[in-house]
């Protein structure tokens, strides 16, 4: 009886956690195209999701200091999603937070490199 109750409680907690946790816009294992949504379509690939977050919240000088930890990926580069943290990044002058997406580059000079990009910069490739 006790084990049944424990199982039910765990199931309830799991349901609650699932319901409360924000969902990522892009699921793991999906192939994406990287394309910057700002004025410059290039995308920074960061070695840590915290630096990604720091870059978008930093002052200009702080952002400059973080740049050695980023690689510039050309617009249109393909990548595959490894994992995702929903609403992890809050850009300084935007109202809503964005996801931090862990990707592996699939093509180009940086092929095979992994890193973190902003959710908005990763576009899911449509299947034909």
């Amino acid at each position: 009886m006790r084990s049944v109750m424990r199982a039910a409680l765990c199931a309830l907690l799991a349901v609650l956690c699932t319901a409360a946790a924000p969902a990522c816009r892009i699921q793991a294992s999906r192939t994406v195209v990287l394309y910057g949504i700002g004025d410059d379509p290039g995308v920074f690939l960061w070695d840590s999701r915290f630096r990604l977050r720091g870059y978008h919240a930093a002052s200009f000088d702080e952002a400059q200091a973080l740049l050695p930890h980023a690689l510039l990926v050309g617009p249109g580069t393909r990548a595959v999603v490894l994992s995702c943290y929903a609403n992890f990044v809050q850009p300084k002058y935007r109202l809503f937070p964005d996801d931090a997406v862990d990707v592996r580059i699939l093509a180009g000079a940086l092929r095979g490199r992994t890193g973190w990009v902003l959710g908005g910069d990763a576009r899911v490739l449509r299947r034909r």
Binding site: G36, G38, D39, D40, G42, F44, F60, A63, Q64, L67, A70, L72, P91, K92, Y93, R94
Partner: peptide
């Protein structure tokens, strides 16, 4: 061009953010 691109993007990103604030 690579230096230009990487540093410039940081500049442009920041400028876009501030411009967005002004526009808002």
């Amino acid at each position: 061009v690579l230096t230009l691109d990487k540093k410039s993007k940081a500049f442009i990103d920041y400028e876009a953010q501030t411009a967005e604030a002004v526009r808002g």
